[in-house]
Design a protein around this nucleic acid. Structure first.
Length: 620
DNA sequence: CTAGGGTTAG
């Protein structure tokens, strides 16, 4: 009796239901992993007649474009023993290789295609070249390329893409030059290649030389700017793109929102959000994450939370964007609550980025024990490897709370080489708790390279009245030829981004700004508030001061904001370096005297100035 | 069904 039932079970044909499922799978533009897994499960039951090659290939196709492309290999290995694979089978397998950048799979599939006599199919070999290239195996890629009897544009483009992926732009350009008729894809490969290397200038040069461009090319250049932190150029190019009558797609929007986030362009970002709603565009996790990031970084965490709550689909990035947004804004409790929610939700796994946010929140909120627990236990629990960034966070956490010995101990026992950021975190702790001796030790050991480190030690000397140390630092910096990073602050007014680089007087309203700042300076002095602070002004600073007037870039941005907006309206300023003590005090003063809420986002965190106080409680 | 473009941290 039991045998009969088993037999009935094991010979269930795939049936119409599955065929309909497969049809649906192929019809939808993207694949949810659950859909494929359900169909996969029905293959596992031995059925009669065996599933057709078409059905098998369909599952491969679905896996290849799903969020878990590597599942395609498992399916191929276990469920396709009875069928003879065709070129289509390999196309999908190779698609899965490229989407999961799996060298192991690529190097196994390659000989298999040769064994089956598929070496003459250029389109298959092209895919192999592409996959090897993505995995950084340029020698293997080149061998396939050289052995091809017939090379088409795609062969060249795949090879160029491979060179570009490892940053070998010389080889990429050489190959490009050999191409009789490069097409848009060839050109775009060069643009992305240069951009990925950080050479946006060269990328733009290539982009400008393109005989024609399509949306992908525009997107490549725009995201190149965004990824290299040139948000203003990205936004300018986006305008140019619209002038040339190209409509943005979701990819363009994702990059542009990221650009808005980096420059704090809340108005433009909001406008795009409205545009998306008006056109009934469903927010995918990419756009969702960018949007959340844009709102958080523009100081509108409440709006970020709204977006987050209403997103139809969230991935790890989305959660991370929200967690980091809350952490940056100083909402420690909320950050940790959201992290709890993420763990309970279970649909996504926390990753390295998640823990940067969690630890950062603990650090800003002074939650030492909780931070330690996440660092030592929770991370291990999720199998998340501790990177230097996390060590920097924990050192920062310990250092801030005054446990300088423990912090130093952590660095000494790190399994990986501490980088400058880790040392700098300890140094910041020394500054906060005025530990000159340890700070000196740290600076001598870390071989400080950036001006910020010397500035920190110098400020520390000054704060304990060691003027000889200040002078020494200054000499050391000159001697070692250490250049200060130019300070750069921006403010968005009427959809226009105004960038101020210290020492640059080119802004059309420069003299008005200076006049306004001078007026405020006088008020501050007579108030007694500012005078007190400036008396302990140090003559070395992270940002190069404009010699004659001594204005940091953020003061210029604030000045412009004050003279060009209605009294009492809030201002948002973005800065690439950390706020200095002087500007911090001055901004507190301005917020009170001008009755303005001023939000300054520096390299590390937000400062919300209101009624003469700052949300960081002068602790940063 | 053959090639190129996207988010979070540092």
């Amino acid at each position: 009796m039991r045998a009969v039932r088993t037999k009935q079970l094991s010979s269930v044909p795939l049936g119409r239901g599955v065929r309909a499922d497969i049809r649906n799978l192929l019809r939808s533009p993207s694949t949810r992993i659950k859909q494929v897994q359900q169909i996969h499960a029905r293959f596992v039951v031995r059925c009669y007649p065996p599933p057709s090659l078409y059905a098998c290939n369909s599952v491969l196709f679905a896996y290849a474009r799903s969020p878990l492309p590597s599942q395609a290999f498992a399916f191929f290995a276990t469920q396709m023993r009875h069928v003879k694979p065709t070129t289509v089978t390999f196309q999908f397998l190779l698609k899965a290789c490229s989407r999961s950048t799996s060298l192991v799979q690529t190097s196994q599939i390659h000989p298999l295609t040769l064994k089956l006599g598929f070496c003459l199919y250029t389109f298959l070999q092209n895919a192999i070249i592409y996959c090897y290239g993505l995995c950084g195996q340029l020698v293997d890629a080149r061998r396939v390329f050289d052995e091809l009897t017939h090379r088409d544009v795609v062969s060249f483009n795949s090879m160029i893409h491979g060179y570009a992926a490892v940053g070998d732009m010389n080889s990429a350009s050489d190959l490009f030059a050999q191409l009789p008729e490069p097409n848009i894809v060839s050109w775009t490969a060069l643009v992305t290649g240069f951009a990925n290397k950080g050479d946006v200038f060269e990328a733009r040069r290539v982009f400008d030389k393109m005989p024609e461009r399509d949306l992908v090319a525009w997107n490549a250049m725009i995201s190149g700017y965004v990824q290299n932190r040139h948000p203003v150029q990205a936004l300018n190019l986006y305008n140019q793109m619209q002038i040339e009558k190209f409509n943005p797609n979701t990819i363009t929007i994702t990059s542009i929102l990221s650009a808005c986030a980096n420059v704090g362009a809340l108005d433009i970002g909001k406008w795009i959000h409205v545009y998306l709603n008006k056109n009934n565009v469903l927010l995918d996790p990419f756009m969702g994450s960018s949007l959340i990031d844009m709102y958080s970084k523009s100081g509108a965490v409440d709006l970020a939370l709204q977006v987050f709550e209403n997103l139809p689909e969230k991935n790890t990035c989305t959660w991370n964007a929200m967690i980091n947004g809350l952490a940056m804004s100083g909402h420690t409790r909320e950050t940790l609550e959201l992290f709890n929610k993420m763990q309970l939700d279970g649909s996504v796994r926390p990753d390295e980025v998640t823990f940067v946010g969690v630890l950062l929140a603990c650090s800003h909120g002074g939650f030492v024990e909780e931070g330690k627990r996440h660092f030592y236990c929770t991370m291990k629990q999720y199998g998340v490897v501790q990177l230097v960034e996390h060590y920097a966070c924990i050192v920062d956490l310990l250092g801030r709370s005054g446990q300088l010995k423990d912090a130093e101990e952590v660095i000494r026992n790190m399994p990986i080489e501490p980088d400058i950021v880790v040392w700098r975190a300890l140094l910041a702790g020394c500054r906060l708790h005025k530990s000159v001796a340890l700070a000196e030790k740290v600076v001598s050991e870390m071989e400080a390279k950036s001006s910020g480190d010397f500035v920190l030690l110098s400020n520390l000397y000054a704060s304990v009245g060691r003027w000889d140390g200040v002078e020494n630092m200054r000499k050391t910096m000159i001697h070692k030829g250490i250049k200060k990073i130019p300070g750069c602050s921006s403010i968005v007014l009427d959809n226009t981004i105004h960038e101020f680089i210290s020492g640059d007087k080119s802004h059309p309203r420069y003299s008005e700004i200076i006049a306004k700042l001078a007026e405020l300076g006088r008020k501050a002095n007579s108030d007694g508030y500012y005078a007190e602070v400036s008396s302990v002004l140090y003559d070395i600073d992270e940002e190069e001061k404009e010699q004659s007037l001594g204005h940091h870039s953020e003061k210029l941005a604030i000045g412009l904001g004050l003279i060009s907006t209605a009294p009492g309206s809030p201002l948002t300023i973005m800065k690439n370096l950390r706020v200095c003590d002087d500007c911090h005090s001055m901004t507190k003063f301005i917020s009170r005297i001008c009755n303005r809420e001023i939000l300054v986002r520096d390299r590390i965190r937000f400062h919300r100035f209101k009624d003469g106080f700052c949300s960081c409680n002068d602790y940063w």
